[in-house]
Nucleic acid binder design. Structure first.
Lengths: 194, 194
DNA sequence: CCCATTCTGTAGCGATCACTATTGATGTCG
DNA sequence: CGACATCAATAGTGATCGCTACAGAATGGG
């Protein structure tokens, strides 16, 4: 009932697939480049991962899981502002690491709309928690802010793809944070009319 | 010395090519879809436009020219803030028009890095003019601001590609404008120490 | 050992890729 | 009209696409 064991590390092969999809995107990545990068012949690839679509789904899910771990760690910071700053800075680093392709698979790949929506939701959740905790002003449009942040993240990814450096991305993030609503003061000062 | 005249409108065919590249990108657009959309047989296409690369260059150049016309019109507004607001709003409309594909060819296509650099330069020029005109504070980091704005534009394009509406994009633009430096006051008030 | 089972590599499937040789149609010229 | 120049359409180039049939190699159970 037992047959010949597979001769390659499935996780390592998947990681190689992640990198390929990350670097070139789904459409531009061919089975030939995948088999070459993964060190696996086509029949083995299809036996282990199904078809190109399912391999991509598994690869993007693995990528997404890692990304979310970073987001969750940043979200634990005491205030929403600190959490968002950390997320943006982590992103700047992740998009410009020499060991990995520039930019972000999740933010670039057209078919990963669902992942981007989940990213939006996670940002929104952290912002709403900030409102509840009192470190974000109660009138803040958290939904708009989350959409804005997703747009900025996307812009950072694109900038990295175009050769932007870590510093370039950090400057974008820093500039974007100027749009973050100011911390509410303990006593709200009523503006005086002229 | 004169031969048979071409039986199709070159400009109309180019416009159809622009739309195809705009909708699907360079790689995903095949000669077959182009000839179908342009109403031209392959040999005619190659005779009139060279190869796929040169057709794309001509198409993206035409797209870019139209985009720049809009930017130049917006740049004529009296202050840099007004100009940028207008640019963002025009972009929101252009990315969500029903008659054209969602998003932006220039901001999405990987190989159009040069066009994005020129966009950055145009934004920077307008911001620097704002500093010279006095409607942007002299200490403003216009280069960072321009990079930030390109990132936001890219984010808006991506949002539109994911199905974002005109209102979604306008909210992103409005939120981004909170990062625009405040108009300098006539008399600078020195902050008092506590 | 033999057999069943599962993996591996070669080799190739039909379809599509960007692109073009060939042939015939259609125009302007003398 | 005939000569010539240019375009258009069919058909097909070799290469590559995603994917798989087939045959040999490596395991565990009897």
């Amino acid at each position: 009932m037992a047959g010949r064991p597979r001769s390659f590390d499935r996780d390592a092969a998947l990681a190689a697939a992640v990198e390929q999809f990350w670097r070139e995107g789904y459409e531009a990545t061919s089975i030939a480049t995948l088999t070459s990068a993964m060190g696996v012949s086509p029949p083995s690839l299809y036996a282990a991962f199904g078809d190109k679509n399912r391999l991509f789904e598994e690869a993007s899910a693995a990528y997404f899981r890692l990304t979310c771990e970073g987001l969750d760690r940043a979200a634990e910071l005491p205030t929403a502002r600190e959490a968002i700053v950390r997320m943006l800075d982590d992103t700047a680093h992740a998009h410009t690491r020499a060991a990995t392709p520039p930019g972000c698979l999740m933010l670039t790949e057209p078919r990963l709309t669902a992942q981007r929506e989940e990213l939006h939701q996670r940002l929104l959740d952290r912002l709403d928690r900030g409102v509840k905790d009192g470190d974000v002003p109660p009138g803040a449009r958290t939904d708009r802010l989350a959409s804005f942040l997703v747009a900025v993240l996307r812009g950072m990814s694109g900038c990295a793809r175009d050769g932007g450096t870590l510093e370039d991305l950090q400057e974008i993030a820093e500039t974007a944070m100027a749009a973050f609503p100011a911390q509410p003061e303990k006593a709200v000062r009523r503006p005086t009319s002229p």
